[in-house]
Design a protein around this nucleic acid. Structure first.
Lengths: 191, 191
DNA sequence: ACCGTAACCCTAACGGTTAGTGTTTCGCAA
DNA sequence: TTGCGAAACACTAACCGTTAGGGTTACGGT
């Protein structure tokens, strides 16, 4: 999968990682808004333009690993056991993602995100992309055969469950409760 | 309700309206990104700082009437007939809001919003605020007595229905279909 | 050994946004 | 009526994220 990359790609990956690490460290030390892109670039010893060559925006520096998120969600659907019902598989994956996001070390990052309107807004727009990817995965599953609307709605509901749980007192219980609702909603769409 | 305001407040409202009208006109004429705040200010014959005294951001110029949206949504819950079930009332109001947003004259504005990432992102963050307001209204209703999680999830689902319908081929049918799902989800939360 | 190009650097700018500092206009009461 | 405090507005100058333009270095394949 991740086979021997050449020196060039290793250097590129190293630069990217160095930028991301430096940024997160500075953000946590001084606060997200108090750190400028120019600060990050200087501290990481790269040019400002290099930062933007690796990350599309300042906010993207914080959500370095969001491609994983999308992949895990869609794979929970596409890679599930044949004939395994959809909702439990989705439920399990969302539960895992929530645990990952509410783990011990993630608390300061969560606080930072919730404390910055720009980051909250960015996180939401990521969520929309994830919901669209998930909806596409649902629509493509030959065993489901629901309407496009049902797929899109269910995808958004699942993302809602994740978002709600990330901010809830008891994340695990919140996921369970919302997925009981989603299960019922999904059943109501049987052709 | 809107009783005799003094000259001062009338002038302020007029300035605000003039800015909003000018902005929308320029945006539609030349495209959202092609028009700068400085252009809007010049054309409306006010200072740039005045624009930001009335609107929190460039995007807010486009969503001038979003307070209405939130109020209509929450009032559909709080002002419904005593003992009228929640979901139909919500369904009806979302249906009306969608019609309003997909009306004939709104098409260019919709196109503009969908054509600009910044506007799409802003619209989503508005949606989150609306969902939170709606969730609060649900939680405050003494006849419902559902968990906070159920209220929050249902609120988000309702906003999802609106958002999906606004981009669907058949908005009306989409609202109906998603609300069948929401009805089932809501029923699944009966204490 | 050599060439194409990917990764990087620097400078300068653009556009949204805000701070700082007046100036005008209105609402209110003496 | 007059005078005062505050609100609305103007102007300037800057900050900050972001991008364009144009150059340099170092890697990978030939």
């Amino acid at each position: 999968m991740t086979e021997p990359p050449g020196r060039r790609e290793r250097k590129k990956a190293a630069t990217r990682q160095k930028i991301a690490d430096t940024a997160l460290r500075l953000f946590l030390e001084r606060g997200y808004e108090a750190v400028g892109i120019r600060d990050v670039a200087a501290e990481a010893d790269v040019a400002v333009t290099t930062v933007f060559a690796h990350f599309a925006s300042k906010e993207a520096l914080v959500f370095e690993r969001d491609q994983d998120f999308e992949q895990r969600l869609t794979r929970a659907v596409t890679d599930r056991q044949p004939h395994e019902p959809l909702i439990p598989a989705l439920h399990r994956e969302v539960q895992a993602l929530v645990r990952h996001c509410t783990a011990e070390g993630s608390a300061p990052v969560r606080r930072m995100i919730d404390g910055s309107p720009a980051l909250r807004e960015y996180e939401e727009s990521m969520s929309l992309r994830h919901a669209q990817a998930l909806a596409a995965a649902l629509a493509a599953d030959p065993h489901l055969s629901r309407s496009a609307t049902a797929c899109r709605a269910t995808a958004r509901f699942a993302i809602d469950a994740y978002a709600l749980a990330c901010h809830a007192d008891d994340p695990g219980a919140t996921v369970d409760e919302v997925f009981r609702m989603i299960e019922a909603a999904w059943e109501a769409t049987t052709p």
